[in-house]
């Protein structure tokens, strides 16, 4: 009995969604006609459905769009608006060009040299080794110079260790005071 009622209700629900076949619809109508209780349930469901279907949309208050746009104008720029694709693409191409052109040129020269003279690869490796040695000795010299200056003048260490964080902190404060990148771009526009 309870299962029949459950099945009736499910079918009524499907009927409201217009998802019953003609045959199923006819069976449902026969069941509705056979029982006052089912007929009453069907009436209430249909009334509910009709009420919901015929209730119009609520209109937005007057000036709603203007208020939303005014709020958007005061919002920090979203991530996508901060990006400048044309500048980004130009910089990307420049960096790619700066790195790839010399690399490809050197690679091409090596290939050509190897093809024409197999001994050239040894010469190139030797030159590379010398260059690396020169860079390492240069860095060692610089570190040595800094070390001797630092031990000669202890104030220098104190200055470096305090001035750098203080400068960074002031830079960060000033950056926020002008409103970051957005503030700078506004100032440059005005």
């Amino acid at each position: 009995m309870a299962r029949d009622e459950q099945r009736n209700q499910q079918q009524m629900n499907e009927a409201l969604d217009h998802s019953l076949s003609d045959e199923e619809m006819a069976t449902l109508h026969a069941r509705i006609a056979a029982s006052d209780e089912t007929a009453e349930q069907w009436d209430h469901l249909r009334q509910t459905d009709e009420l919901l279907r015929t209730t119009p949309m609520a209109e937005a208050p007057v000036g709603f769009t203007d208020r939303v746009m005014a709020m958007i104008a005061t919002m920090p720029l979203p991530g996508f608006a901060k990006k400048n694709p044309s500048v980004g693409i130009a910089l990307g191409l420049l960096v790619a060009g700066l790195f790839t052109i010399p690399v490809f040129s050197v690679a091409l020269l090596i290939i050509l040299s190897v093809i024409t003279n197999p001994g050239a690869i040894l010469t190139f490796a030797t030159a590379l080794f010398h260059a690396a040695g020169y860079i390492i000795s240069l860095i060692t010299d610089i570190i040595g110079q800094i070390e001797s200056r630092a031990t000669g003048t202890p104030v220098l260490i104190a200055l470096v260790t305090t001035m750098i964080p203080v400068t960074l902190l002031w830079g960060w404060v000033l950056w926020n005071l002008v409103g970051g990148a957005r503030g700078l771009s506004r100032r440059s526009k005005s």
Binding site: M57, A58, E59, A60, P61, F64, T65, V68
Partner: peptide
């Protein structure tokens, strides 16, 4: 977009 969909969203 706000103007077009204000009624839908508000409803």
């Amino acid at each position: 977009l706000v103007q077009r969909y204000e009624r839908d969203v508000f409803n």
